[in-house]
Design a binder for these strands. Structure first.
Lengths: 251, 251
DNA sequence: CGAATACTTGAGGCTTTTCAATAGGTGTGG
DNA sequence: CCACACCTATTGAAAAGCCTCAAGTATTCG
């Protein structure tokens, strides 16, 4: 097993590299003083994950939260019948492992979709620092609250409606999540396979293919391989039935 | 509008009436001293909600968290196309409104399925008390984490699998959520309409009816109107494809 | 007790799935 | 750098499961 690089990040690296990171929100808006900030920064370790290397498995003891720095990941569970269900995709700046805070056991398996870099936050340490900084705790609650909203968005995508709406909504929400982290709003990288995407939407992969083709035929998107461009966000929103930016960005 | 009764609960009432309540978990395990406990108890107000009276609407300013004391509720959103999606059912002891903590706007509309009593926790006050009691904050995180697990269970119910599995899983999870609060493990009250239940599972209400009939024919359940008895939890688990107690109770 | 609502059951149609074959990419080794 | 092999994605045709529509039954509430 490859040992982590960059075990400790200095303050400047934190501010530079993590400008759009959930953890950033956890600390930068808060009035952190020398000691607290050092502790928060000092507890971060960073790790490389090649394809196939699980970050953690369902049932593992939950000691850390994780924040995606680079790449993307998926989390999934299986039923006794052997059916797999993808629960989520995780993009840079997003936090992973919040479902383990109750039982302190991970509730799903997480693996990278591509070579990814992930930041590790020892949960105990995080709590200790947060206990002394109310605004940090408040930010943590906000991050978790946003996680619930993402779950609701997922549920909306799986809801009983035509396949074309589900796919359109997925693209819309994915674009939004990426722009939230400062990416160009119309260029998407579908880093997951069609099969994973289909599973996430409760569709067959062939259906996803067909719907993507349809959306392209109607000139809402342009797609080649896994690179996707949104040509008409409003058209897409009309198909999906959700207002542009209505979800998770309400103010 | 009927004014709330029991605006302030005394300590004994709290301990007696809320033995199985999420808020109970928020405070009782924590070493609360006179002042803190008084503040926590003092900020609780209780309200009656008849059928049709919304607890809050989507977009409303989010000032409170809510805990179900009696009855049951549903939360839902609509798409631009007019399609309704039920996001959750809320049982006694469960907490409502966590999805509003990020934007401080409610992300769904909540209404009772029957005459219900709900406890109100002003979020600001909760934060103030929690800021001084680390273990209280930790409990709050655990409650939210469990909320995420409930969302995952919902996603499993909506996943691409036969209707019979979805319905079986719903009954299994509902029974589990109720036993967690001290209810008899085999007797369920389906307080929602077939239509609501079907919507929650991404099925047609007729399909839910048929599946319930099938489960009854196979002697897994006994159903009359909205009262349901689980005759064979193991058989039900075999149908649903999930281990009994595997979800949210892993240790 | 009667009206309105909710639930069950049946038949037909339709969207999506499944099965199958082809095309397109990616990656590796000669 | 090209060729071959493997994996992934697309497309087509047939089948299946679920949905819609419709009628009938039961239940709740006034």
């Amino acid at each position: 097993m490859k040992k982590d690089v960059n075990n400790v990040l200095d303050l400047e690296a934190l501010r530079r590299g993590c400008r759009n990171c959930s953890v950033n929100e956890l600390c930068l808006p808060a009035p952190l003083h020398g000691d607290d900030l050092d502790r928060l920064v000092g507890m971060l370790t960073s790790g490389d994950y090649e394809r196939g290397r699980h970050v953690f498995n369902i049932g593992d003891r939950c000691r850390n939260l994780y924040v995606v720095q680079k790449g993307s990941l998926k989390s999934w569970v299986t039923t006794l019948h052997g059916h797999v269900q993808v629960l989520g995709f995780h993009l840079p700046g997003e936090i992973i492992g919040l479902d383990g805070l109750d039982s302190l056991r991970h509730q799903s398996t997480v693996e990278p979709l591509e070579h990814s870099v992930i930041c590790r936050l020892p949960y105990e340490d995080l709590e200790n620092v947060a206990a002394r900084i109310p605004s940090l705790h408040r930010q943590l609650l906000r991050v978790i609250s946003r996680e619930i909203i993402i779950e609701h968005e997922h549920i909306m995508m799986m809801s009983s409606r035509p396949a074309i709406e589900r796919v359109a909504l997925f693209l819309q929400v994915l674009a939004q999540r990426r722009t939230l982290r400062g990416h160009p709003p119309r260029l998407l990288e579908l880093s997951m396979s069609r099969a994973d995407l289909a599973n996430y939407l409760a569709l067959a992969s062939e259906t996803v293919s067909r719907m993507l083709t349809t959306l392209q035929t109607r000139n809402f998107i342009r797609l080649s391989h896994r690179k996707l461009e949104i040509l008409d966000p409003y058209g897409l929103a009309e198909v999906s039935g959700e207002e542009l930016g209505s979800m998770s960005l309400a103010d």
